[in-house]
């Protein structure tokens, strides 16, 4: 088991784990309310942002629930150790 774990490529998110399109966001607050780990927060305009990226477990709730397709999963870069 330890060997397979070591071979797993490390994933890096250069622009963050999620990406929010502010142009499409209507500030309904659904993503922030249903974030199970509390990683998302609203800024002073009501637009969500990933306040604590370490808390985000990529559970997909925010981008599945977003009615405006304004949240997508961030781009991944896989690196071999």
């Amino acid at each position: 088991m330890a060997e397979t774990a070591a071979k797993k490529p490390k994933v890096r998110y250069p622009e963050g784990k999620i990406v929010v399109f502010e142009k499409w966001c209507k500030r309904c607050g659904i993503c922030v309310a249903f974030c199970p780990t509390g990683a998302l927060a609203e800024d002073e305009r009501g637009v969500p942002y990933l306040a604590t990226p370490d808390k985000c477990v990529l559970c997909a709730q925010c981008w599945l629930r977003c009615p405006d397709f304004a949240i997508i999963k961030g781009p991944e870069i896989k690196e071999e150790e």
Partner: peptide, 15 residues
Amino acid sequence: PTVWCPGCGIGTIMG
């Protein structure tokens, strides 16, 4: 962006 009101469920169903 879509014409629907903020928080409308139709966008979620479309997804």
